[in-house]
Each structure stands twice: as C-alpha cells, then as structure tokens.
Design a protein around this nucleic acid. Structure first.
Lengths: 228, 228
DNA sequence: ATCTCCGGTGATCGCTCGATAAACTGAGCG
DNA sequence: CGCTCAGTTTATCGAGCGATCACCGGAGAT
C-alpha cells in the first residue's frame, strides 16, 4: 500500500505519482480552487493548476460531482476533529474561560477564506451537508453551551433548551460567525483582535442569559431598562 | 412615453408589449430566477420563463452582465428607500422603541429568499456593490445607532465610534442578519416570532453597551462576572 | 533485454452557453 | 390597401463545458 513516492524529477514535470498521493493532491487543490472560483469552475482550470491534463481527473473521480462531494467531506469534516465536547463541558474550569477558548479554537478552524466560501456556496445550493452542519452546530455546540449556562446559573438542567434560549444562542453564534464573513468574504475592515471580539460577544451573551435566567419564572420576556 | 399597453390577447402568447413594460418585466423575472438558481443560470431559461425567445433579451440589454447589474440595482436600492434616518434619530421617542421598530422594518425589507440569496451571491463574487452595501450599513445604521446609544448614556458624542464599539454593533447586527440566513437560505427551523428575536437581541446589545459605557474610562475590556 | 501494466496524454464528442445576423410579423399611418 | 418599421423569431456561430476514447511510454517484473 505504501508505494514509492520517490519520483524521477529530472523531467520537466513530475509524473507518475502514486495513486493515493495523486488523489489526495487533487482533492486539496480542488478545494482551494473551488473556494476561490466557486463550483462553476471548470475541470480544465483545475487540471492546469495541478500541472496535469484534464482527462486525468476522470481516472480518479467518476465525475466532477464526485470530486465536489469529496471536497465537501474534506472541508467540513477535517477541521472538526478537535475535542469540542471536552472543551465545553469540562466543569473543572470556569465557564467563561471554556467559552472563550472554545470560540477561539472554533474560529481558528473555520475563519479562513476557503472554509467560509465553500460553506456559503453549499448553503446557497441547499445541499444536505449544509443542513447537517447547521444541525450539528445546534446539537453539539449551542445546546451544550446552554446546558452549561443553565448549570452555572443553578437552573434545572432540562434535556432540551427552550426555543427562546436557543434563538439567543443562535444570535450570539451568528454574530461571531458574521465577523468571519465580513473579514474573509466581504474583505471589509474588522477589529483585528479576534479574541477581544469573542470576549465582547461573550459579555453580551452571558449578560443576556443572566437576565433571562433571572426572570425565568415568568415566561414572557421583560424588556430591560434602556441605558442612561 | 406612455404607450398603449392594451395588447391583442387572442393569440396564444402575449406579444408586442411596450418597450418600457418589457424591460421592467425582464428585470423583475430575472431577479426571481437569479435569486433561485444563481447568476450562472442561462439566458435561455430566463427567456423561457418570460414566454419569449432568448435573442429578444439582447434587444433590451447589451449583454447578460448588464442585465445582472440592473438586477443588483433593483434588488439593493429598491427596498432601501424607507426613511431610516428618521426612524433611528427621532429622539422624541425612546431609543429602545426606535431600535425595535427599525429592525422590524429593516428585516421586513431584506428577510426574504430573493434579497438574501442575491446578496450572498454578490458577496461571494466580491462585487463592488456588496462592499458599498456593507459600508452603507456601517455608516447609515451602525454608526447612527451607536451615536444614539452614546447620547442616551450621556457620553460625549464623538464623530466616529470606536473600533470596539463598532465591532459590538456588528456582532449584534450580524446576529440578527444570521437569523434571516438560517430561515431563508438554510431553511432551518427558527424561532417564528421575529419581533421577539429582535427584542432579545436588543436586550443583549443594550446591556452590553451599557456595561461598556460604565467602564468607559479604562480602555481595556473588563470581563463581567459569570452568571450564577 | 523484453514484456506488461498502468499512469498519463491528445483528440474529440455532444452539449450548452452568450451573442449575432437575417428573416418574419403585425400595428399604425398615409 | 399597401408601406413602414419596431418588436419578435428562426437559425446559427464560436467558445467552453463535462466526459470518453484510443493511444503513448516509462517503471517494475521476468
């Protein structure tokens, strides 16, 4: 299985790579190109970037769609292999610290041009994998965060968060996410200190949750008094 | 200029519309189709939806790109003709009420499949009109909101908000925006009561701004005590 | 040295795209 | 009625797309 990767380099172009190396190289470069140009980008441009001819792609992938699916799998799943559960649920550390560290790690993973662009493209296409990701964020991140917040506030740990709580967490999460979109998609000027942005957003969220928790008995939202 | 719009309807298909009517009909339908299928959608599909033949498009628009530009203009500018400045800056009404009403009106205008999809497509394409829009949000909405908040909190009204303040407002704004993306792009289940979502987000933001205003003298962020 | 296998290439097919040119049609007007 | 011309269609072009084919040639086995 582990073939020789030593290839004669005297020729103008490297040739005769092993099948596994070629395949993974294709996926990597395809990810970069599709992130940049969108999935409408042609197979010839992809081949040109790889330094090979276009029909060679079809020796490794039955169709362009199959290549795209592989790109999705790589982009979505690869950066998500970090132990998020432990990061969020380790109650030996203060919640504020856990949340701060989690969002710094999480945004380190997804705040780049490649990930965000492919994510948005797949969202606009309405692909299943996008809905799967949204559901994953809800179940593995937001629900977990809310459970920890409820525990910290001394509230009963219910299995599933209320719709209003969840929406609050989504607005918070979306606000942070939008920072990445502004920076890497819109290329708009943003506050450079990402950690401070996260910290400020956390202040907002935790203060809001605290307020919501205080008036937990009456179900209707009580508007806070305005500043000043 | 105002030509007869009465057209012989006895034929299978309506024909011979006036030039102005045709043109605006083209832009309207093109907007719908491009929002649905993306700008990669062909001119033949567009013509089919309009019930005319494809070359007819080129009598009204020099190229597909020109048609697309017109679509952008219509989509971006049309819903933005509401008097936002007055809504935000009318100090005879409480700030909380102004903000709530503004965001309800604003999201009524942009939270629909058509607007959001075209906005995201243009963002991914890196078009100038997208950066213009982001700058408009910053100058006409966020800066104005921050000015009103500073005034309400009795702080000095400076010409331009600080970077940290602006980022706070962006996170808040982005959180609300992401609600629309989740609902109309991802088609994920969301809290149906949009007004309550806005109200909750406003609670978060105003509480956060209040806290930031309290510690206005020392520049470094002071993390709040965690809940519970 | 020769054979064989397979990574890699050149040529090409069928299709769709945006765009153009030429032919057609019918309402308005003398 | 017959002329005119703007509005509309038919036919077609050249380019680029995804995909397929026959073929080439070097590395490893014999």
């Amino acid at each position: 299985m582990n073939r020789k990767t030593l290839v004669k380099r005297t020729r103008a172009k490297q040739r005769r790579l092993s099948a596994d190396d070629r395949r993974s190289e294709f996926v990597t470069k395809a990810t970069e190109l599709f992130a940049e140009e969108g999935f409408g980008c042609g197979t010839r441009a992809l081949a040109r970037r790889l330094g090979v001819t276009q029909p060679l792609l079809y020796r490794y992938f039955p169709s362009k769609d199959d290549l795209i699916k592989e790109v999705y799998r790589k982009v979505y799943l690869e950066p998500l292999e970090i132990g998020w559960e432990k990061l969020l649920s380790d109650r030996s550390r203060p919640l504020r610290v856990r949340l701060q560290e989690f969002y710094e790690v999480y945004t380190d993973a997804i705040f780049n041009r490649k990930w965000l662009r492919i994510y948005l493209y797949s969202g606009l296409k309405g692909l299943d994998i996008n809905r799967w990701y949204v559901g994953m964020v809800k179940d593995k991140i937001l629900t977990r965060i809310l459970r920890e917040c409820r525990h910290e506030a001394g509230l009963a740990t219910q299995s599933r968060p209320s719709a209003a709580e969840l929406e609050l967490a989504w607005v918070f999460h979306g606000g942070i996410f939008y920072y990445g979109v502004r920076k890497y998609i819109y290329e708009a000027p943003v506050l450079e200190d990402k950690a401070q942005m996260i910290s400020d957003a956390l202040d907002l969220f935790l203060a809001g949750f605290e307020r919501m928790a205080e008036s937990a008995t009456d179900r209707r939202r009580a508007p806070i008094k305005i500043v000043g």
